[in-house]
């Protein structure tokens, strides 16, 4: 549906401008905020960057869940700094979206009233300390796979935001894996937590690449416009190929009895995640959808008086300055 809409929007544009725009993209040029762009390109970018920003912000919650229970001072500081980085990522991305003519407040309202989505992975709960390892290792790991190619995306501000973000994400992944090592090589209880975390996060991490491209409505146009750089299936395969040996090193079992190295393809064969679960979570029926939205709505509603108060003060000061001149 949406892909068709983009098509018609794109074709409704001035054909000369559109041709010139597409030629620039084909030549690998960056599109900047003041440049002409088709309405569909702008709309697709707002949706993608907005969802990405929302994912960073909602993504603070599952890990924030363990900050107050971190087992050592150092672990607490590392986790807090990580979750703080995610807030920073949200900020860069809202700024990138603002260059397309949509404000941070508008995007936030759209998140809070359900018009916009965030990554479904954050609708899964974090139940033990090992989940802090699994989230860094698998979730940040999958995010990196998705985001590294986006450093070359056609829209300049998005591409630059992704370059900054990717640097930090690879730290996060290493820190996550470091927690996994401590757990997997720790006491039997810790090892059990590590295996349990892998069991619960493996398939949700695979889902982070989105449904198979055959079923993805947005893919074709986005690839043509270099908003998207690889197919979902390519990235998922790359993730599995890189992650399985890491799990083996930890002595943990990937929860997929059909996982097997395929000599001929030079890749692992693996089971698809349960896509009906994916669509359920997308519809709002994941284990934490309601809680995550409630937490964000509450933060926004309870922050209203603070935002209003600080704005009112800024206006008073400005007025006093003018009066003094």
């Amino acid at each position: 549906m949406y892909a068709q809409m983009i098509q018609s929007e794109a074709t409704a544009e001035d054909p000369d401008k559109l041709a010139a725009f597409e030629a620039r993209i084909a030549a690998g040029e960056k599109i900047e905020p003041k440049d002409w762009m088709p309405a569909g390109y702008r709309k697709t970018l707002i949706r993608q960057i907005g969802q990405h920003a929302h994912s960073e912000i909602v993504g603070q919650l599952p890990e924030g869940n363990w900050i107050t229970r971190a087992p050592t001072l150092e672990r607490k500081a590392i986790l807090l700094a990580k979750v703080q980085d995610e807030a920073g990522h949200g900020l860069y991305l809202y700024c990138a979206a603002e260059t397309l003519g949509v404000s941070r407040d508008e995007l936030t309202e759209m998140l809070l009233d359900g018009r916009m989505k965030y990554s479904s992975i954050f609708n899964y709960p974090t139940l033990t300390w090992a989940d802090m390892g699994a989230v860094g290792w698998l979730v940040d790991g999958a995010a990196i796979m998705n985001q590294v190619p986006l450093q070359r995306t056609s829209y300049g501000p998005y591409s630059r935001a992704m370059i900054r973000i990717c640097k930090e994400e690879s730290f996060h992944q290493r820190q996550g894996y470091d927690i996994m090592m401590k757990m997997a090589f720790g006491t039997p209880a810790q090892k059990r937590m590590a295996q349990d975390a892998l069991n619960r996060f493996w398939y949700p991490a695979l889902m982070m690449f989105g449904p198979s491209d055959k079923e993805s409505v947005h893919s074709a146009q986005s690839m043509a416009w270099k908003i998207k750089m690889n197919t979902n299936d390519e990235l998922r395969q790359k993730f599995v190929d890189e992650t399985v040996p890491q799990a083996e090193y930890l002595g943990l079992t990937v929860p997929d009895p059909d996982l097997k190295w395929n000599e001929e393809r030079g890749h692992y064969d693996f089971s698809e995640p349960d896509w009906s679960e994916f669509f359920d979570v997308l519809k709002g029926n994941g284990p934490c959808n309601a809680d995550r939205m409630e937490a964000r709505q509450q933060a926004w509603a309870e922050g209203q008086w603070v935002r209003d108060g600080l704005m009112a003060h800024a206006r008073k000061r400005a007025a006093r300055r003018v009066a003094a001149e």
């Binding site: 919650l61 607490k76 949200g90 809202y94 937490a295 933060a299 309870e302 922050g303 603070v306 935002r307």
Partner: peptide, 10 residues
């Protein structure tokens, strides 16, 4: 640190 993720603005 209890505020992390819940403050009034980013």
């Amino acid at each position: 640190s209890e505020w992390c993720g819940h403050a009034p603005v980013i």
